[in-house]
Nucleic acid binder design. Structure first.
Lengths: 338, 338
DNA sequence: CTGAAAGCGCTTACAG
DNA sequence: CTGAAAGCGCTTACAG
């Protein structure tokens, strides 16, 4: 590989001058500048980002640790994050925790070792050793979507979506369709989104004079298989629910799998709704009613907050609002309530 | 940040010794070793991967440039790649080209500047400036899924799937259901997968005594919107096709969108099949018949090949085989041909 | 406007 | 078995 030294030699200047030209330092004579530039193109020289990082103590890289790449919500988030980061001159390295705390820690470890400038985390579990370490090392850090509710992370901004209004709207929608026995499949209790969505749902139900019995609360882990299991359990109940609200799109997929394998139809035999809207929800049989997060904005805001921290401008938490997209999976709006 | 020097000081040894302990060099006395180790834990020291990379000329990082992260096929591929890489002690940085050659080049540029050890590319277009540069710089490089058919890349191994047998099976399936007017939505002509799939399809059709008229060949770009447009064009034909075969899952999604917006039903009004199988194809209305690639194995093999190149073991191209998963979107298997 | 020199945090021959 | 020293490829005060 050709180095800055080769360029200096060919241009007949010192490496310091080459460096100045490359970094657009103003104090360089125009003809020196062009001599250097042509040496650069002649040699096809490209600065070594590793060396530069070692010297400047910045890598212009952001780490993004998400819980599950195969989940379209996180894929969209990752894409938005990368777009926003690139616009600001940062690269992003994605770590896929696969909903496993050990893998999450592995990625945070690796990212920290690589001296990324900042960390975006959607934690899989509560505070793990590495998340705590990152926080106390004062690594610029922002939580997206999910966060950790511990004192150690009090200073970490959270960029997230508040779904309670949309969940209220959903319950209103369900009530209007005549449903009363309504069940939910929650996420892992170690995740904030896991608990929060269940709580919002319970509140909304209460506001409509409905209760949420424990047997109607399924325990999921945000992956399809758990949605399937929870659905099977609901179906085995003496009095099964009329509606299942899956708190993420993969568990909704699992629920559909289970219903389908038993020959049950949505919404005739069971109504279904999901948290997180994804493109293919439009094409399922029937199209699925969902609480939609402004995913792209979530990603942009998270990057904005993180770069604010990195560049010393500070950052605030931000809470966006989800909205309900009603489709046909809970019954026809135009039909009369059963 | 605490550095190797701090550790050396605290342990009362030289940095060389600390380095040896960290790298498990055998020639270190046991008690020195443990003194160093406890200094490491006391200080919470973590080696700086940037410095190490500068010195050793390796980053233990693989670059993966894919055409579209939002495409579930590539997401699955990326996940498989990361898994296989992690097992071998490599990290991976994903670059999303979004089917844009300029973005593809941006990512290859960035990746090369960061001195990744090797590059995995699923090229969006034919050879771009940067892909050529990477190839001629002899950067360890492997093509996955798509490749570039140019002399400059003759030495680059290709890990891909051959879909022709599955496409033949698909055509047989369509014929058995009585279909004769069969259209295809191809990918960009700059991509190998774009052309190859159309060619395989044309061959299969010919083998069944059917031809593929130009008006039945839609020009897509592997994104949903183009599937929609191509479908609209087919529908505007004097004699529209009876079947549309979309050469990726997103264009199939677009085709469904278009059919749906016109109130047309699959397969009654139009049969539909797709290249690439994705989890939600099971849940669409109706479930979609697809040519499934062994995506996970594709990713594993690609990493195997690339690490082979990096570590001097060499690498061969590998071609896996796709298979047909027939579902209901082309008509019922048990129905009599119309 | 330009160069010599120090230093970022490591690894690794070379001595001893 | 261990240390002093060179060097990876840059950037940046400090002089001039």
């Amino acid at each position: 590989m050709t180095s800055i030294k080769d360029v200096a030699t060919r241009a007949g200047v010192s490496v310091a001058t080459v460096s100045r030209v490359l970094n657009e330092h103003p104090a360089v004579r125009e003809d020196t500048r062009s001599r250097v530039l042509s040496a650069v193109t002649d040699l096809g020289y490209r600065p070594n980002a590793v060396a530069r990082s070692l010297r400047t103590h910045q890598t212009r890289t952001l780490g993004l640790v998400i819980s599950d790449v195969l989940n379209p919500f996180f894929t969209e988030l990752a894409r938005a994050v990368e777009d926003a980061a690139r616009e600001r001159g940062y690269s992003v390295i994605i770590g896929n925790a696969d909903e496993r705390p050990d893998l999450q820690d592995h990625h945070i470890r690796t990212l920290l070792d690589r001296r990324i400038d900042g960390l975006l985390v959607s934690p899989t579990h509560g505070g793990t050793a590495l998340t705590r370490e990152a926080a106390q090392a004062r690594t610029p850090m922002v939580f997206v979507d999910r966060w950790i509710d511990e004192a150690a992370f009090a200073h970490v901004p959270v960029v997230r979506t508040d779904g309670s209004a949309a969940v209220h709207a959903l319950v209103g929608h369900l009530r209007a369709l005549g449903h009363r026995r309504i069940a939910i499949i929650g996420g892992p209790s170690e995740t904030t989104t896991g608990n929060e969505r269940v709580d919002a749902f319970r509140d909304a139900l209460a506001a409509h004079g409905l209760s949420l019995p424990a047997r109607y609360v399924g325990q999921g882990d945000f992956q399809a298989e758990s949605g399937r299991r929870a659905t099977a359990r609901f179906l085995a109940l003496e009095e099964p629910p009329e509606v299942i609200f899956a708190t993420d799109n993969l568990m909704a997929l699992g629920a559909m799998d289970e219903l389908r394998s038993r020959g049950l139809r949505v919404p005739r035999d069971m109504a279904l709704a999901a948290f997180d809207d994804v493109p293919w929800f439009l094409h399922t049989d029937p199209p699925i009613t969902a609480v939609a997060q402004p995913t792209e904005e979530l990603g942009h805001r998270a990057v904005h907050a993180l770069t604010g921290l990195i560049e010393g401008r500070g950052a605030d938490s931000v809470t966006l609002t989800a909205r309900l997209t009603a489709r046909r999976s809970c019954g026809e709006d135009e039909g009369s309530p059963t």
